[in-house]
Simulated scan of single mutants.
Amino acid sequence: MQAITETIFDVVYLTLVVTVGIAMTIKSGGEKQYRLFGIMAIVLGAGDSFHLVPRMIALCTAGLDQFTVALGVGKWVTSITMTVFYVLLYYVWRNRYHIVGRRGTTAAVYLLAGARIALCLFPQNGWLSASAPLSWGIYRNLPFAALGLLVIALFYRSAKEAGDRAFRWMWLTIVLSFGFYIPVVLWADAVPAIGMLMIPKTCAYVWTVLIGYRAMKEGRQAD
Rank of each mutant, 00 (worst) to 15 (best):
V151P: 01
H98R: 13
L149P: 08
T83S: 11
G148D: 00
T173H: 00
L147W: 05
Q124F: 12
Y181T: 14
L150P: 06
P133W: 15
A153H: 09
G148Q: 01
A118V: 15
Y110Q: 06
L149M: 12
I117C: 12
F85I: 01
V151G: 01
A113F: 05
R94P: 02
L111G: 11
V73F: 15
L172E: 03
S177G: 15
A132G: 06
L150F: 02
V109F: 07
A115M: 15
E161P: 09
Y91C: 02
V175T: 10
Q124Y: 13
R116S: 11
F144G: 09
I182E: 01
P133V: 14
L134R: 08
G72M: 07
F178G: 13
Y110N: 06
A159M: 04
T105V: 12
G163P: 10
R102T: 14
F178K: 11
R165D: 05
Y86R: 00
A159Q: 03
N95M: 04
N141Y: 02
V77L: 12
A146Y: 07
F167E: 05
F85Y: 10
S129R: 12
P143M: 09
V100T: 12
F178T: 10
V84T: 09
S131M: 07
L142Q: 02
D164W: 02
S79M: 09
G179K: 04
A162Q: 08
L142I: 11
S131P: 03
G148V: 00
I80M: 11
L111S: 13
A145L: 13
I80L: 10
P133A: 14
V87R: 00
V87P: 01
R157N: 06
P143L: 08
A159G: 03
P133E: 15
F180V: 00
A166H: 08
S131G: 03
H98Y: 11
R116F: 04
A118E: 13
A159K: 06
N125Y: 09
W93G: 01
V100K: 14
T173A: 00
I99T: 14
L142G: 01
L111F: 11
T81E: 15
L150K: 09
I138H: 03
V100H: 13
A108M: 15
W93C: 02
F85N: 05
N125R: 07
A159L: 04
T78A: 14
I117K: 12
A162P: 06
Y181S: 14
P123G: 03
L150E: 06
A162F: 04
K75G: 09
R165F: 01
